[in-house]
Design a protein around this nucleic acid. Sequence first.
DNA 1: CTGCGGCGAGAACGAACGTTCTCTTCGGTA
DNA 2: TACCGAAGAGAACGTTCGTTCTCGCCGCAG
Lengths: 196, 196
Amino acid sequence: MDGGDETAIRTQVLDAAEELFYGRGIQAVGMDAVRSASGVTLRRLYQLFPSKGELVEAYLLRRDRRWREELAAAVDRAGGSAADRVLAVFDWLDRWFAAPDFRGCAFVNAFGELGGTAPEVAAAARHHKDALRGYLAGLTVEAGATAATGDHIALLAEGAITLAAVSGAPSPARSAREAARLLLAPAVESARPPSG
Amino acid sequence: MDGGDETAIRTQVLDAAEELFYGRGIQAVGMDAVRSASGVTLRRLYQLFPSKGELVEAYLLRRDRRWREELAAAVDRAGGSAADRVLAVFDWLDRWFAAPDFRGCAFVNAFGELGGTAPEVAAAARHHKDALRGYLAGLTVEAGATAATGDHIALLAEGAITLAAVSGAPSPARSAREAARLLLAPAVESARPPSG
DNA sequence: CTGCGGCGAGAACGAACGTTCTCTTCGGTA
DNA sequence: TACCGAAGAGAACGTTCGTTCTCGCCGCAG
């Protein structure tokens, strides 16, 4: 039950904190809940993260990195044409929405809860969304569309995440995917070798 | 400083609660802050709203009604073709995003903060988004497009609200407006009298 | 063996919060 | 005037939370 070296304990704590913060909201979860869920003593917890604010920051930082890595990996695995890779984003969202613990975007949730009072949280959310937008813009431009179309794709993805969370159904992913396909269609057509 | 009859006091309290809950988050605002901001005694506050939960519910209910009424009024004022009326939604969002106290969708924020533990809050958010979706579907069908296109419009609006909040800039409204115009274009064209 | 530094377990502390209670004042009525 | 219910002002209560402190135990240097 010891937990091993420091980085292993860090992972244990962050795993527990992530599940609790994401599932119940940050303010609704006390440090004691993180402690008992991670099986770590309170003393150790505060040695690793000197305050709850720093634990929250670490939670958001790690989640940002992992979420975007997983998205990129799924897109890479999907292969196909550049436009197919854009659409694969929405297939990945669909699978995410169907997960039993899905509760929307952790950054939007944290922003709504703490963005008005905690600037680091607001900054983390802004950074996450900006990075996502950049990633989608890259994919979209590769598909022969403009960066503006990339923004449109980002809007669809964002709306799908929020509406799937609030409605509790994964269907916004498919709806957004169809809209993205329509927005990409002109670029895909003009990228084809001219047929006449 | 008395405040007058009961419904006037209710309005005072709800005005103060709305500004505080929306601006700082619900859990970050204590009943005492609502009391001092509304200039009402704690006794009166609890006579009107027997618990904080009921105050939160009343806040969300009133905000839902007023927000959707204001949107519908702005769309009605905009006039023009049916497609123009759909686009007027995004013009209205643009103005909202530029307001100094704009901090995203109150229902999404409340959902992120309390949706995991308070079912009434989750239900209020679901109801709000469903009503908005229904309204946009109506507008979109009037413009000659399908209900599926209405869902696409709703996704764009939702994404615009979230991204404007997190980024702090109103530009997502214009971006979403342009995407909506593109999605509506086929319907608008086919609705024109055939030109050849 | 003898200290000593570190650690697990959880008590303790100070602040904040939701909610209720007390005390006092005051307006209306017989 | 004497009384009663309502209400303003804010203290008080019980709980929760973030954070720190205490105590007892164990491994190790001399």
